[in-house]
Design a protein around this nucleic acid. Structure first.
Lengths: 335, 335
DNA sequence: AAGCAATAGTTTATGGCTTAACTTCTTTAA
DNA sequence: TTAAAGAAGTTAAGCCATAAACTATTGCTT
């Protein structure tokens, strides 16, 4: 691999000059610039990043962490979409993405993760931090590494999906269609901050419409299709007058729809069922699912942009990425 | 951040000794080992990876590339499962994963990717390389960086899904159920090597059963649910005696099932429809999809293990990861 | 024309680690 | 007893790029 040295020799200047030209530090002539660039081209030179990192502290690596606390990480389509957004911004700025999946337990993250954080590789961190139980962000803060949290853990800088307004939009939509007997299929709130906020949004919408949110029938699943099916079975048999089911993710909605179909109820003519997330499959489900789009790629992009601001010593304000109600065909007025 | 220097001073030995102890190079006593380890603990020392990389060439970073050639990358669940497998192996060995999504065009990969490959960061590469049009592996080879291809591009070392046997298993299953009028919903072969091999497997199974594979009705979609629906519509209207549809991915199968339902045909009683991939949704679709599991996590793990062998100067043999036929409820004997 | 500032470039120390070469000390064998 | 081998450490030379400190040149002001 050619080094700065080689370039300098070929161009007939010192390494310092080459370094200046490449980093665009002032004080060189157009002529030397051309000489240097020419040598760079000829040799196919690219800066040695470890050396640059050692010398200047800029590693051009940011770590994206998503905690390995439940199976969902590697099957959750949101993760990939978020990554997509982060990737876009990072590539633009010449940064590389290091993937990190800390194993969070009661006594903190695993050793490998800790070593990474201490390794000097990581110039900044985007932590996808959504579960209250543990945070991968602690060690980052401790080391003084610039970081942005994507989720609800406390950090100075964070990006969140506007879960409250997501819940609000959905509940408003359902209420607007005329439903009043509404069942909620959720998951235990303590497991996910975001769920708490979505429910909060729904509560506001419900109360604005004069409904007591706490009186609405509820059941807790675990995000899976099967749990959605079970919850739907439970709610629909216990509260026979329910005309709409709001599910806190798409997969449970799909399970609920399956149950409805089995019971011979047509969605949406006979029962309204909606989801949350807008996973890739949602649009081509039968019926196509009315749901909430969290704009995962935009969350990724926003968090990356925020991180770069922090790296530039700015103090960016928190961002709440707006949600979008995606109206398809699983919701209709009650009969 | 504490350095080797600090550890050496605290332990009362030279930096070289500390380095030896940490890298387990022979010639030190148990006593010094304990002194050193104690100092390491006290200071919370972790090696500076850029420095180590600069000095010893070992960066402890492997790059995983998946080419950004069509929309699928960031929505394809397989990618994430593969990543999962790679992650498992890498973490075990103290390696970090750098995510890279080269933009492949006619005149080669983009500049950012090239810079990464030349940057000295990358100790090894796992290239998810499935499209014939272009390869992200070229520049890796050129630089002499150890690499493993996950897919069909030529490299000395590669891991592949055993697509031929996947196709064979599926066709055998369908034939075994008694179907003879079988429609195939595929995608243009030139776009994906793996498709070519799956079809080849099907051909073998068909011919072994005395069927002329070329005579079977076929239609090409583009992997999407909608295209599956269209292809099904086309095939079923054109060839009214079809009793089974084999789709080359699950999403198209789901589209096909939707079409069948719309036409009032029950799956599987009235029509058999199967997919390929076993995406997370497949098991909870209605009906649950009979499909082929490619064992993506295992492919990831295998490729990582192979890469580590290459890094150890071994010459691992190619691996064909076996496929599994997942029998659910979308296939039944013809009526 | 002198003096000074700005420009253009070079020299060199530095960052943290590894490793080859070297020194010192302990074993072991003849 | 002594030489040679082996073990346990140390010294110091890199690895490559950056940036502070320095020299040399040019341009401008008065």
């Amino acid at each position: 691999m050619p080094t700065l040295q080689d370039v300098a020799e070929k161009a007939g200047v010192s390494t310092a000059t080459v370094s200046k030209v490449l980093s665009n530090t002032p004080y060189f002539t157009e002529k030397t610039r051309r000489k240097v660039m020419h040598a760079v081209e000829e040799l196919g030179y690219a800066p040695n990043l470890p050396a640059r990192a050692l010398s200047g502290g800029k590693t051009h690596i940011i770590a994206v962490t998503f905690p390995y606390v439940y199976e969902a990480i590697f099957t959750d389509p949101l993760v990939l979409r978020i990554l997509e957004g982060i990737e876009t911004e990072c590539t633009q700025r010449g940064y590389n993405i290091l993937l990190s999946t800390p194993l969070l337990s009661a006594d903190g993250p695993d050793e490998h993760y800790l070593n990474l954080i201490r390794s000097g590789y990581v110039e900044g961190v985007i932590a996808i931090d959504n579960v209250p139980l543990a945070s991968a962000f602690e060690p980052v803060k401790k080391r003084g590494i610039p970081g942005v949290v994507l989720g609800y853990h406390t950090g100075d800088y964070f990006v969140r999906s506007d879960d409250v307004s997501g819940g609000l939009q959905m509940m408003n939509h359902i209420l607007g269609l005329g439903h009043r007997k509404i069942g909620i299929i959720s998951v235990p709130e303590v497991l996910h901050f975001s769920i708490y906020h979505r429910l909060e949004g729904m509560r506001r919408a419900a109360e604005r419409a004069g409904l007591n949110f706490d009186d609405l029938p509820k059941a807790n699943g675990d995000f899976s299709v099967n749990s959605g099916e079970k919850c739907a079975a439970q709610l629909l048999s216990e509260y026979r007058d329910i005309t709409a089911l709001i599910c806190l993710n798409d997969r449970m909605a799909m399970g609920a729809i399956r149950h409805a179909h089995e019971k011979g109820r047509h969605v949406p003519d006979n029962l309204t069922i909606v989801g949350y997330d807008d996973i890739p499959m949602a649009g081509s489900f039968e019926p196509p699912l009315t749901t909430i789009d969290q704009q995962a790629p935009e969350m990724g992009r926003a968090s990356a942009r925020m991180l770069f601001e922090v790296l530039d010593n700015k103090k960016p304000a928190p961002i709440h990425v707006p949600t979008h109600l995606v109206i398809r065909q699983s919701a209709a007025p009650p009969v």
